[in-house]
Design a protein around this nucleic acid. Sequence first.
DNA 1: TAAATGATTTAGGTAGACCTAAATATAATG
DNA 2: CATTATATTTAGGTCTACCTAAATCATTTA
Lengths: 219, 219
Amino acid sequence: MTSLAEENYLKAIYALNLGDSSASTNAIAERLETKASSVTDMLKRLNEKKLVNYLKYRPATLTEKGQAIAIDVIRKHRLWEYFLVEKLKFGWDEVHEIAEQLEHIQSPALINRLDEFLNAPKFDPHGDPIPNREGKITERHNQVLANLSVDEFAFIVGVKEHSNSFLQYLDAMQLVLGTKIKLINRFDYDQSAVIELVDSKKEITISNEVSENLYIKTT
Amino acid sequence: MTSLAEENYLKAIYALNLGDSSASTNAIAERLETKASSVTDMLKRLNEKKLVNYLKYRPATLTEKGQAIAIDVIRKHRLWEYFLVEKLKFGWDEVHEIAEQLEHIQSPALINRLDEFLNAPKFDPHGDPIPNREGKITERHNQVLANLSVDEFAFIVGVKEHSNSFLQYLDAMQLVLGTKIKLINRFDYDQSAVIELVDSKKEITISNEVSENLYIKTT
DNA sequence: TAAATGATTTAGGTAGACCTAAATATAATG
DNA sequence: CATTATATTTAGGTCTACCTAAATCATTTA
Ligand SMILES: [Mn+2]
Ligand SMILES: [Mn+2]
Ligand SMILES: [Mn+2]
Ligand SMILES: [Mn+2]
């Protein structure tokens, strides 16, 4: 019913709107690494299929149907990522590309059984919430480590950046999901921060960029 | 590198040649439920890519490269089927369509890890051999139940027919893989046979068509 | 071996999903 | 408000993978 390409467009529009950006032709093109003219093409077709609301020169939005499909694809993506990490022992930096393919497999039965097999996980390996069977997502608007005050404790619960290099950096620093940390100090100069890994009692220094890209939950 | 459509053509040619039929344009078209003219089109392109050997008006054969891809796709298909049945608890009559999609996911790492996760199974849920990492298949040329003699014992090890209706019939009759049977009698009239399910000591009567489509291994 | 039949290819299209270059609309700026 | 600059669309292609109808080849069959 909906092609792989169409699903990727719906996902892109969904993601842009979530991030409070408007799904302009150019923004979509950049996300999908394609050209603006191709996007215009596709928006017309998706509008025809009543999956997006599109008027010339205006940013696109998803219809109910379009959004339901986008969320379903995201559900599949995140469930597969969870499977790859938990069952097949992939690293969290290795699963996104594979999930980009698996998310387009069409079989509701497959996804429901996979969900059961995995015990209906709530979060994917990057801390992103997995939509449930009915398409409900509880989008956490977590704080970011940059907002934590000195001497406060927190758990690392997710990443804002998803690049492999960031994930690999976090692995190297032992800043994995679930880690309990305490903010020891933050330097005025460049906002770099000294944090303690509570369990291992190790202290490490991280840049502001890192602090901005780690989601935390205060204790 | 190779598209979903290309992979399906390679698989079709491989299967035809295995079954000692020649991969003629029409035979391929029938298997793939497409038109002969479309097949000609594709054969030209696959020939260009050196995946098949093709000369006008002649049946196609696979090159080494083409065969390697075909076998890899079959490996993926059968591993996924095994996963679906063993881990996700699908019935053997429910997995083929889903595996038709999953077999095209491109990621050698994924398949190797899946294989490990499943403990490198040798046979899929229908008794078909799973090619190993190096692309080696030990094609069993099993006997079929129709060749069993009266009073002989055997195990059911595979199905020749893969249709859902046949698989569902076998489920209903409790003729699942691994079942030990004894041939009690075969009627001259229509070759229908009376067999005993050794473990449950039940006797059932099956048609010649069924006998021709069940692979067995004599004890 | 000529005609008929069936298999295969060619010719000419379509739809999806891209692309570049050119035209046009919108937004920003002096 | 007129002029740039930027965003977006249109025009015109390409490539893949299909299709129908017509032409051609190959194999039977008379
Ligand atoms: Mn991902
Ligand atoms: Mn993720
Ligand atoms: Mn199958
Ligand atoms: Mn099978």
